[in-house]
Structure formats: structure tokens, C-alpha cells
Write a protein that binds this DNA or RNA. Sequence first.
DNA 1: TTGAAAGCGCTAACAC
DNA 2: GTGTTAGCGCTTTCAA
Lengths: 335, 335
Amino acid sequence: MSNIREVAQLAGVSVATVSRTLQQPELVSLKTRNKVLAAVKQAGYKPNLMAVKFRSGKTHNLVVLVPTIANVFFARVISGMQQVAHERDYSLLLCNTLADQEMEASYAKMVQTSQADGLIQLRAHNPFASLEPASDAVLPMVNACEVLDKTNCPTVVLDNRAAACAMTEHLLSLGHRRIAMIKGPSRSPLTRDRVAGYRDALEAAGIAYQDELLFRGDFTLQSGHKAAAELLAMTNRPTAIFCENDEMAIGAIQCLKQHGVKVPEDMSVAGFDDISFAQYCDPPLTTIAQPAEEFGSTAVSLLIDLLEGRLTKAPKVILPFELIIRTSTGPVRGA
Amino acid sequence: MSNIREVAQLAGVSVATVSRTLQQPELVSLKTRNKVLAAVKQAGYKPNLMAVKFRSGKTHNLVVLVPTIANVFFARVISGMQQVAHERDYSLLLCNTLADQEMEASYAKMVQTSQADGLIQLRAHNPFASLEPASDAVLPMVNACEVLDKTNCPTVVLDNRAAACAMTEHLLSLGHRRIAMIKGPSRSPLTRDRVAGYRDALEAAGIAYQDELLFRGDFTLQSGHKAAAELLAMTNRPTAIFCENDEMAIGAIQCLKQHGVKVPEDMSVAGFDDISFAQYCDPPLTTIAQPAEEFGSTAVSLLIDLLEGRLTKAPKVILPFELIIRTSTGPVRGA
DNA sequence: TTGAAAGCGCTAACAC
DNA sequence: GTGTTAGCGCTTTCAA
């Protein structure tokens, strides 16, 4: 690899002139510029950007902490991130954390060790928690999708409570009164908000909330299947299931079919996310569409703005959702 | 951010001693070591790894070029990459190329500009093609999943021809004689190999290959749906469809159902990849399982070995496949 | 308009 | 066992 000194020598100028020719050509005379450019070409010179980054103290790298890239929703989020990052000349350092705190901390350390300028976390956990001695300084971090309750960093969220409420209202409007919910891990604020929205709607309809109608899943197809099996074992079955994501809904639907329960005739099923498979399942899934790519692009935008000092205070961006009614939900039997 | 000089001053030693304490503590006396460690702690010192990388000329970054991260199969591949990369202390710079050559070139440039040590390409195209003046030097690159025909870099592949042949044989064994194929873009070697395997099996069974039974898709759910629609419009319909990935198979199945064609009674459908949704569709999909994560982990391993000089010549790793028979394929009607 | 030189933070060769 | 110092490749004053 040739360096700037070689080029300078070849062109018969100083290294400063080479640097200027490449960075601020207007400061260099046309004649010298051409000499330098010729030398650059001849030497096959490619500036060592690592040196540039080192010197400038800016890496233009962003760490992305994603719970599971295998989750279709997150894949779309990352896709949105990538686009904006590329446009704004940043790179993404991806980490598939599997929600492991040590893994998260290990990547968060990249920010502290100057390997990245900032970080985006897609889960409700502060990856710096175990590292920082609880400094009050603003962390170079953006929290998106599932956000921490108490945080002073920019966030990008959906109004999960309102979305869950909307879906529950849809089911209520179809006459359902016993509506089960297959939820995510209890600790998650995202799950908590969606359960809250579900309860809001029930309450508004004057229906008592019942703990036994809540089933625990982990956002995988399998867990949806399993939860549905538990639900079918109830003596007093619900007539509708609201799943916290589409994967669990698809898993649940399969289980219902295997038990001869027809969707939506015998049981309505709704999902959340509107992944591409949602409209290709049988029956096509009623769900909540989230602007996945926009989560990613907004998060990256915010982070870059934060890093480049264009953010005075931490904004909280709320992205819109849309209730997508397909045919996996229908009127309650006998309505 | 404190630096090594501050720590040295604080501990009353030279910077070399601080560096040694952190890198090769056995060379430093216990007493000094403790002094230094205390100073490190007091200063909240975090070594600037960008400086280290700059100096060493090794970034420990790997660029990953993935055609579409939204494709479940690739998401799994990346997941496998991440794991090995982390184990071996490398980071992944992710690029969702959408098969755009300019985008690929722009990221490949990161290798040339010393921002990354090597690159993994998951598509049959040399991202350095437009950059390098056709040097014969070994590129710091590994090609996986869909590989270039002529390349002297390490590759990780499936024997797509054999896999497609196996699937076709399975369909033939069920009595199918008119077997359609929904394939990918024609230029792709992957598609070419799978079509070749399909023809191998037909030929071995003494069945003439017919061009009209090949339908073009692009690996998306939509394209599978569309291709199936075209196929249903034929006067002499096939009795089975072999799709080059699961997404297209799922899209095709929906289309068939919408037209009242029962799977597998009226038409068998097979996929390729065995994504998680494959066993949760209706009917569960007969497919070819590929060790997706292993593609990723192997590719990263090979690349690191190559970069660290542990590879004498470019290996071509062939990963195993498995025919997974579920219920989307069945005996031909009237057999 | 150009050049000389300092210095970003770190490591390692060499000296003591 | 420890210190001094050169230097990785680049940008950016400061001087000429």
C-alpha cells in the first residue's frame, strides 16, 4: 500500500500539498494539482482512512445492537438503518446480541474504546450500565423499537399502548368478549405497554380483565404454537387471540388448525408487525403495521445528529401504526 | 478521554510501562503494575483502539455484503457470521446491497482504504471488479452461498445441483411427470445449478425437459405468487412445483389455494432453504434444509484464516444439505 | 501557493 | 525492569 509520502515524492511536492489536493483542491494551483493527481494515479494511492479516523477522533462507525436478526421485523429495521447510514457516510457495526447483556456490554465497549462514535440499542436495556460508573453524561446512544422507561437519550417508538388498544377494539367490535393475549417476556416495557392497551380497550368496553387469558411467549413461531396449545386446553376457551407479533400468531394458527379449530370461524387470531409473511399465511393475518424501516432510518438519523452536535435535547419520536384488517379475524361465532 | 500519557504521569512511570502493563504484564514488576493499574482506574482510562488499529495496520473489521437482509435465509447466515466473528475478536461491517453493484463497490472500497481487513460476498459478483485494475493478487475475500464460477478466493457452497436433483427425484418418486420450477434470476449461477440438477433428475428418469415449465421469480413471496398464477393459466398444468426458495413456495401455495387448487392433493409444492416459516405453513413445506448459520460461520472462519496467513490455497467448502419431506408434496393424483 | 513540522495515541526497538 | 524515542499516515497550523 502506497502512502502519502510516496505520492509526494513522485509528484515532487510536499505531503501537505498532496493532502490539500485531495481535501481542499481549491487551495492548490491547477498545475500542481495535476501533477499530484497524476502521481496519485501512478502510485495507485488510496488514502488510509484508518489514519484519518484516528487523527480526527471520529470513526464514522455506529454500533447496532439487535436482539435477533433472525426476526423479520428487525431485519427490516436494519435495512432502514443501512440506507441512511450509507447516505450520511457512516458504517454499521452489527451485533446480534440474542438479548445477552454481556454481549451487549462487549459491543458497547467499542464506543468507549473509540472504535465507534455511537450506538443504537433496539432493546430496553442500557448496554453501558455495567461499564459506566453511572455518569450523568449524555450517552452517544439512541434507543429504538423497545425503549427504556427512564432514559435521557433520543428514542424512536410506536405508541404500543394505543396500537394494542386499537387491535383489541377491533376484536371487541367483532363481538369477541373473551380475548386471549399471547405476550412477550413480562419484564419487557413493550409487552407491558401492549398489555396495558389491551386492558384499556377491555375496560372501556366494560369487560373485566382476566389474568388467565394472558399467555407467555417469546416472539418465536414455536412459542406461539405452544401458547395456543395451552389456550386450547382451557375449559372456557377464548374466542379470539391477540398475539404480540406475527410469528407467534402464525405459530398459533397452525396449532389451532391441527386441533381442528377454524380461523376465523371458531377463533380469530391477530398479530403485530405486518411482516411480509402476514399477508401470505392462511388465512391472511389481521395485524398492526409498523414502519420498520423508518424505525431504523430515524434512529440512525437521530444518532448522527446527536453525534454531530445538532441535537439540543433528546427527542422522543413516535412513529405511526396502522391496523391492517385481513381475514384471520372475524365475527364471533353466533354473533 | 484520558490517554496513555496521563496515566503514565499519574503513576509516575513512562508510557511504555503503561503499555506493557496492559499488554504484557509479565514484563512489569508487581509493584509497578499495581501503581499503573491504580492510575488506569483513577483516570478512567480506556485505550483508544482506533490508535492501536491504525498503528498495527489491522482493523479487525470484516465487510459483509448481503443481497437482502430481509431474506430470512441470509439473516441466519449473518447470525452465524456474527458468532464466529465475535469469538475471534473481529467485527462485522454490514451492508445490505440489494444486489446493487455500485453499493457493493462502495463498501469493497473500505478494504482498499484500510477500514476493513477483508470482505465476505454472498452473491456471485466480484465487488472489487470495478475498482481494481485487474490485479492477480489474492483478494482478501471469501465468497459464500452464491459463488462466482471463476474465482480463486475461498468459497463456501452447497452442492445446489445435487440438492435440486434430490428434490426432483423426490417428486418423481411420487409419480410426478410434469414438474414445474419457479427459479431465480437467470444470470445467477445458483439458479443455473439448481436448474441443472432438476434436469439431471428428469433425464435420469427419461423425461424430456420442457422450457415452458420454468418460471422466473426473484426469491420474494410476491414473485412466487405471481409465477404460480402464470402456471395455473397453462392448458396442460404441471402436477408439482419446485421453487428455488421457501418464500416463493409459500407465495405459490397461497395462489394455488386462492384458485381452489389443493396442496398436495391437486398440486405438490416444494421449497428450498427450510426457513423457520417452512414448518409453520399450511401445509408444512417439503424443502431442502441448508445449514445457514454454518455458511456464515465457515465464511468468517475462512476469511480470518486467510487474513492471518493460515491459508495456503483457496479452499472450496461444500456444506451438506438435507431433503426435508413434509406434507406439501404427495403422490400425483390418480397414482 | 507551497513547505516544514508538530502531533493524534499507541507500540516496540533499543538503551540503560 | 524501566525509560527514551521513533514512527504508523495523515491533517493542519505556521512560516515563507
